[in-house]
Computed example of a mutant assay.
Amino acid sequence: MDLTTILLLLAIGLLAGVLSGSVGVGGGVIMVPLAVYFLGYSQHQAQGISLAVLAVPVTFVAAYTYHNSGHTLDWRYALIIALSFVVGGYFGSKLAVNINQQLMKKIFGFILIIVAVKMIFFSKAKGVS
């Protein structure tokens, strides 16, 4: 691994971490596209690396910061989502590894567009009228 690659990996990690901590995105939204376009990974490899990073509770400190800053988190909800994420991730990965890379990129991009449109035009926070 050369110095340029190490610096690129550090930049991707820092960018994903800053965006994850500040606006809640990082893994799929940041790491996957950057790994595809700057590291030359296939869509499957990029998704795998993003999931591998999340295998360690890398964002726990950021979540704890939100909690301590008065944005109380329901840790029970987080635990339930995390456990079901493990199960969903297993079945999703079983499905994804059998999908053609070009189709996978299109599915990934389409999901990002749908989420972006929903967040921009139809977003409503829980408990806010």
Results as ranks from 00 to 15, higher is better:
Asn98Leu: 12
Val25Phe: 04
Ile81Val: 15
Ile81Arg: 07
Gly40Val: 00
Asn100Glu: 15
Pro33Ser: 02
Thr65Asn: 13
Met119Glu: 11
Gly21Gln: 05
Ala35Gln: 01
Gly127Pro: 04
Gly40His: 01
Asn100Cys: 11
Leu39Gly: 00
Gly26Met: 05
Lys126Asn: 13
Ile49Asp: 00
Phe38Thr: 02
His71Gln: 14
Asn98Val: 13
Leu8Tyr: 07
Gly26Ile: 04
Leu7Thr: 02
Val29Asn: 12
Lys106Gln: 10
Leu79Pro: 12
Met31Ala: 02
Gly17Thr: 05
Tyr66Ala: 11
Ser93Ile: 02
Ile113His: 09
Ala62Pro: 06
Gln101Leu: 10
Val29Glu: 09
Val58Tyr: 11
Ala116Glu: 08
Leu7Ile: 03
Ser22Ala: 15
Val25Ala: 02
His67Phe: 15
Ala11Glu: 06
Val115Tyr: 09
Ile49Tyr: 02
Val23Gln: 13
Gly17Val: 02
Gln47Lys: 04
Phe85Val: 12
Tyr66Thr: 07
Leu51Ala: 00
Ile114Arg: 08
Ser69Asp: 11
Phe38Cys: 03
Ile81Pro: 05
Asn68Ile: 08
Arg76Ser: 15
Gly27Pro: 07
Trp75Gln: 08
Pro33Asp: 00
Ala96Lys: 06
Tyr90Cys: 06
Gly24Arg: 13
Gly17Gln: 03
Thr4Met: 12
Asn68Pro: 07
Leu83Glu: 08
Asp74Glu: 13
Gly92Met: 09
Tyr64Pro: 08
Gly27Tyr: 12
Met1Trp: 08
Gly27Cys: 07
Thr5Ala: 09
Thr5Cys: 06
Leu34Gly: 04
Ala52Asp: 01
Leu19Asn: 02
Val128Ser: 05
Ile6Glu: 13
Leu39Tyr: 03
Leu54Ile: 05
